[in-house]
Write a protein that binds this DNA or RNA. Structure first.
Lengths: 174, 174
DNA sequence: TAGTTCGTTTAGTAATTACTAAACGGACAT
DNA sequence: ATGTCCGTTTAGTAATTACTAAACGAACTA
């Protein structure tokens, strides 16, 4: 039996909310993206609020977060004070901007603290045997983070991480 | 000025807690991993509880989660009823088991719902023009998820995702 | 048998995060 | 200026998540 389009859309949006939550983002964020992604034209704040059931305030803050990540884009119309938002449809582009956004955040600071730990350990003079063990462990972790970081930077630098590149990677990993 | 090893370790563990939180895991989980990672020998539940400041109950549940992800390993000693845990030191191995663990979870279910949405849309007969638009959008998203999924599966299948492979990937992406 | 010593579960609490309602301030129109 | 229409901010609340304390059950011991 064929369902009403509205119902299908609603369930799709629900699905995106779940995915959003899974990745540690507010579920409202997923819903907002979903609404925009299924809209053929840019929507205003109030329209998004209406369709998601969130308040204008919540939509305001979360749609800006989405914009910082490059998942949505703000646009304006002449002689119209409203802002309009539309979803980015190139997801590879989005990944790149999310990675870019995530660099220079708390995460980088935390990773930096590992580096710092290593420096401190190496500056020490006492407890030779325990220090040697700790240095080795922390160094290994730091190398791992560096590898991840290189990967992320490489992806950010690509002008397009398309299906083609993904398939190239897949062929290497075979 | 050289600091006490204990202080340095403490700050390192704090750093791992932050990183853990950043990725959407409980910060206690990061602390537990940190304690184990800096220990040259496996530790018992109570010892982990003591060093992290968490209760035995909390450690029990979170250390099991870590074990499911393959980030720590449980071991036992003859004539000793205690369980002992130690950190996995091969992080690439860990990534693989985390990916493996994440498959077949809520995430997969949510991604599956996108597939389902597509099927429902294609089964419809009314609203030809709007449906065409929605189908196109949802299909694009589904393709994207499939690409991610292939990557994850490829990584899981590798017997070793080492630095070597990472560098190969980097060279492709250049 | 009763008594230890473990890990796990449970029920409740603390802390954090997501959200609402409403005030606010800027930009424009009259 | 005054009022309206926006987006943003703020202060408070709801919902969720992380945790504690304590009871529990299994496995062993005496």
């Amino acid at each position: 039996m064929t369902q009403k389009l509205e119902t299908i859309k609603q369930e799709f949006i629900e699905g995106l909310s779940q995915i959003s939550r899974f990745w540690g983002f507010p579920k409202g964020m997923g819903a907002i993206f979903g609404v925009l992604y299924l809209s053929p034209s840019p929507l205003s704040l109030d329209e998004i609020a209406r369709q998601t059931g969130l308040t204008k305030g919540a939509v305001s803050t979360e749609v800006r977060a989405l914009a910082r990540m490059g998942l949505v884009h703000r646009s304006t119309r002449l002689a119209d004070r409203k802002d309009y938002y539309e979803a980015e449809t190139d997801f590879y582009k989005s990944i790149r901007s999310i990675l870019k956004e995530r660099q220079n955040t708390e995460f980088d600071r935390a990773v930096g603290s590992v580096k710092e730990t290593l420096a401190r350990l190496e500056a020490g003079t006492t407890n030779a045997e325990e220090r040697a063990f700790l240095i080795e462990r922390v160094r290994a972790l730091q190398e791992f983070f560096d590898a991840i970081d290189s990967l992320a930077r490489a992806v950010v630098k690509l002008e397009s991480l398309g299906l083609a590149n993904v398939q190239k990677i897949l062929s290497i990993l075979k």
